[in-house]
């Protein structure tokens, strides 16, 4: 067991964990943030995607102990005070989710994608999201949602 402290969504969580504890389980069980999900054992599905220092990573393929001293952002950080983030609003408006299981990971990747490329083409969006599986939507509406969010976020940035 090792004691580790992680900054998740701006808040520090300290806990004793085994070295083998995966980041996703630390987030779900120690930090009690269950919006980040688990969908496979092979680092294939991306439903566990969170931002590690701003970059999307599969939290099932990182040991919690490796994240000591780093900043984690999960889906729970997106709507402080209940006002939806433009990406959340866009997924809602465009029917970019059905069962909702891939949605948190998909949105975290989308946010990082738009950070890197604020005005992506459809192909760039499809490429950028290709580490996150969705079994329900067929991706059409997810692409539309990212396009809507891109517009909303650039307008927001211009207003700032």
């Amino acid at each position: 067991m090792s004691q580790i402290s992680l900054n998740i969504n701006g808040k520090t969580t300290t806990a004793d964990v085994e070295n083998r504890t995966l980041l996703v389980h630390f987030i779900r069980e120690q930090a009690k943030l269950t919006g980040t999900h688990v969908g496979c054992d092979s680092s294939s599905c991306g439903v566990c995607t969170v931002l590690l220092d701003g970059n999307p990573v599969k939290s099932c393929t990182v040991f919690a102990i490796m994240a000591e001293g780093h900043e984690i952002k999960t889906v729970e950080s997106l709507a402080p005070g209940g006002v939806l983030h433009p990406i959340q609003q866009a997924f809602w408006d465009q029917h970019g989710l059905q069962c909702g299981y891939c949605t948190p990971g998909m949105m975290m990747t989308s946010i990082a994608l738009l950070e890197q490329n604020p005005n992506p083409s459809e192909h760039e969006i499809r490429e950028g999201l290709s580490g996150n599986l969705c079994r329900c939507t067929g991706y059409n509406n997810i692409v539309k949602a990212v396009q809507q969010a891109a517009t909303a976020m650039s307008t927001q940035a211009a207003d700032d």
Binding site: G35, H37, L84, W92, L97, G100
Partner: peptide, 19 residues
């Protein structure tokens, strides 16, 4: 009509079995 169930899923507040 936009889906009534979405706000909880969008905020990571779905309640799945492993939660």
């Amino acid at each position: 009509m936009k889906r009534k169930e979405d706000p909880r899923f969008l905020q990571g507040k779905g309640n799945y079995i492993d939660d």
